[in-house]
Design a protein around this nucleic acid. Structure first.
Lengths: 149, 149
DNA sequence: CAGTATCCCCCCTGATACTG
DNA sequence: CAGTATCAGGGGGGATACTG
């Protein structure tokens, strides 16, 4: 996360967002967290990430207010890593990535094998883009509905 | 983009997506491309990226079918870099990142200065998440509407 | 289990020079 | 302008060992 040039104060919100969660591991951690992963070891085994990297990434996410520590849900002495509201708000980003990946990155003959993976057991939730006037809804580039507002 | 472990065949669509566009520069290039940037030098001056890195990234994006080369729109002998439909589909990802950045990464007292930036001159297009049954629309975590279909 | 500490390589990245 | 080639450095990232 230490970059030559920080974009944390860039004028563009996209650049700022990427400065915070623009690396590969962070978004995968957040994906797992959204799906309910809470324990250090659970993240590690799910991601296949080295322990040191995982610790560094979790610490960075906590510093940036994306995640926080909470008492373990199972009553053990350890602590869980859970998303803050700021982190939970990233579910739209994850959903957008998931939708794009599903639509663009699979061969048709492997589509079925994918659906049984745990990461696809979540309800599919298509993203809809609302137009600037707030009255027209698009799915990808197709207008799907006009709303009365 | 050369990573120790490739996620290009991962079962999870989020992981696959990140394998393709999960690095910092690629998404910034795509952001610019969505906003209409087409020329090599335009990307370079907009991003402040080294020429070598830009060439490498553009080549990777072309290999992965995100961008393609097209005759220069101004009739010059050079070629433009433009998004393929597959790349244009990433506008939802960019929109999600933009929305999250705008909502979570600005101090209130600097919000105004941001709005005049070129990257914010685009129409604001809030993302809406459609529920699995396709009938309920959410904006962030707030239900905004039920639809007839 | 839940991390921390250390080593070390690879490659990302930037800078510069060069070509067409 | 539009890149390619080459070089130097620094940190990302993995593996392992160690602590509580």
């Amino acid at each position: 996360m230490v970059k030559r040039v920080s974009l944390s104060h860039a004028p563009c919100p996209v650049a700022r967002a990427l400065d915070v969660i623009g690396d590969w591991w962070s978004l995968l951690i957040i994906r797992d967290a959204i799906e309910g992963v809470r324990r250090f070891s659970a993240f590690q085994s799910s991601l296949g990430i080295a322990k040191g990297m995982l610790a560094t990434r979790l610490r960075a996410l906590i510093e940036r207010g994306i995640m926080t520590q909470a008492p373990a849900s199972d009553g053990s002495a350890y602590r869980d890593y859970v998303l803050t509201p700021k982190g939970q708000a990233l579910h739209l980003v994850i959903a957008a990535l998931r939708q794009w990946g599903e639509e663009e990155l699979y061969e048709t003959d492997e589509a079925h094998s994918v659906l049984v993976d745990k990461h696809d057991s979540l309800p599919v939730a298509p993203l809809i883009l609302r137009s600037a006037d707030g009255r027209t809804l698009y799915w990808s580039d197709t207008q799907v509905q006009r709303v009365g507002d």
